[in-house]
């Protein structure tokens, strides 16, 4: 009996959770005229026009490519820099380690709005405005600290004796790190990559400010449509649905470690 009550509660929650998303999905299969004239719970005459437009119009699909490009770049930069640092934090105590860790943490908490203007000035000086690299680098502000944090949690779960044994057996540090240690924490690396992907994917403010045309993210293309008069709701909904797809795909691979990752590896 108790089990049933639980399940019913959960099903109600998931229903409410999916309802807004379903509504957008519903819109995405309808033309704008249809949306504005008929109120309907499902598409009467499903049409793929909205999706077709996004896949054929360069101003739309290049937005997706740009986003995927800078997000991947950011994930690579974050992981490459965070791996050795996380190892240092989990294995060594060194001068100022706690302060440094705290300082990194503050950057995860920093309001992106604060950095908006200086980023723009800084990247203008180096002629980086409207490049994918600029967005990837600016997202490092919150992703690198996060990556260090999650990885440190996972690395601290590996007993130090493993390191000691490897060094006694004559492994050099790079060889030990690449062939023994990284395979041991591959779950952690996967989870970290997922989180860097996610936070870079959902961020809009910095990505929008630092780009104009060449590296414009899909999210910014969508806001442009919002601000214009005469909204095409169907098109907007289709674009929105397509931004959910990549996240929904990668989430499947980390589903079993998801909870631990959100707890920053510290459960």
């Amino acid at each position: 009996m108790k089990f049933q009550k639980r399940t019913v509660g959960l099903i109600i929650y998931f229903f409410l959770l999916l309802l807004p998303i379903y509504w957008m999905l519903n819109m995405s299969f309808r033309t704008n005229a249809d949306i504005l004239s008929v109120f309907s719970f499902y598409p009467h005459e499903p049409t793929f026009d909205n999706y077709l437009k996004i896949f054929t119009d360069k101003s739309w699909y290049s937005g997706y490519l740009n986003t995927i490009y800078y997000v991947s770049m950011n994930v690579v930069i974050s992981l490459m820099t965070a791996l050795p640092a996380a190892y240092a934090f989990s294995r060594y105590s060194f001068l100022g380690d706690k302060h440094l860790f705290f300082w990194l943490l503050t950057n995860r908490m920093a309001p992106p709005a604060v950095f908006l203007l200086p980023f723009f000035q800084l990247y203008s000086t180096f002629n980086l405005i409207d490049t994918h690299f600029a967005v990837a680098l600016s997202h490092c502000l919150f992703n690198v600290p996060l990556a260090v944090w999650i990885l440190e949690g996972f690395m601290s779960g590996v007993p130090r004796e493993i390191d000691e044994m490897a060094y006694i057996d004559g492994y050099s540090f790079p060889r030990f790190f690449l062939t023994i240690f990284m395979p041991l924490i591959r779950t952690g690396i996967g989870v970290t990559a997922f989180f860097c992907f996610m936070f870079s994917w959902v961020e809009l403010l910095l990505a929008r400010t630092l780009t104009t045309t060449v590296a414009k993210p899909i999210a910014a293309t969508m806001t442009r449509t919002v601000s214009a008069s005469g909204l095409d709701w169907g098109l907007l909904a289709a674009a929105g649905i397509l931004t959910i797809v990549p996240g929904a795909l990668v989430i499947w691979f980390v589903r079993n470690h998801l909870a631990k990752g959100f707890a920053l590896g510290r459960v």
Binding site: L17, M198, W201, V202, I218, A219, T243, I244, G247
Partner: peptide, 8 residues
Amino acid sequence: LPLLIPWN
């Protein structure tokens, strides 16, 4: 799922 949707 909601956590993976871009904020805008």
